[in-house]
Simulated scan of single mutants.
Amino acid sequence: MAQAPPMNVLEISAHFRVEHDKNRRQFSIRLNGSHDKAVLLYDYVGKKTVDLQHTEVPEAYRGQEIAKHLAKAAMDFVVEEDLKAHLTCWYIQKFVKENPHPHYLERILH
């Protein structure tokens, strides 16, 4: 019997629940209980280095700060796991610029 992939669920607010699927290397938010979901994709580019690559929110759900919740979860993961991060995704670059917390900034590779 196949074992379910490890998945962490982070409660961000009453409206959005961020799930972290470490096997698929993605953070996601299911939208309104439907099959639609917003995702943030990353990959390991070294033993302790991740590349936060891409954030995607379905067009109908844009402008609701959904990507912000994904970006925060990803950056918190980087801090908690003591990783370094490349910020390939423009949205995560924007998030960190707007939220210049030292514990985020010290993790970013330029």
Rank of each mutant, 00 (worst) to 15 (best):
R30Y: 11
L31E: 11
G33Q: 07
G33N: 10
S34D: 00
K37D: 08
K37Y: 10
K37L: 04
V39R: 03
L41Q: 11
Y42P: 02
V45N: 07
V45T: 14
G46W: 04
K47A: 13
K48N: 10
T49K: 03
V50P: 00
V50D: 03
D51W: 08
D51E: 12
L52K: 01
H54S: 15
H54D: 10
P58S: 03
E59Q: 11
E59I: 15
E59A: 15
A60N: 14
Y61M: 13
R62P: 10
Q64R: 02
E65W: 03
A67L: 08
A67K: 05
A67I: 11
K68A: 03
H69W: 05
H69Q: 13
L70G: 02
A71F: 14
K72Y: 15
M75W: 03
D76A: 14
D76T: 15
F77A: 07
V78H: 03
V78A: 01
V78D: 00
V78R: 05
V79F: 10
E80L: 12
E80V: 08
E81C: 03
D82C: 09
D82A: 07
K84N: 08
K84G: 00
A85F: 01
H86C: 07
H86P: 00
L87G: 02
T88Y: 15
W90C: 02
I92C: 00
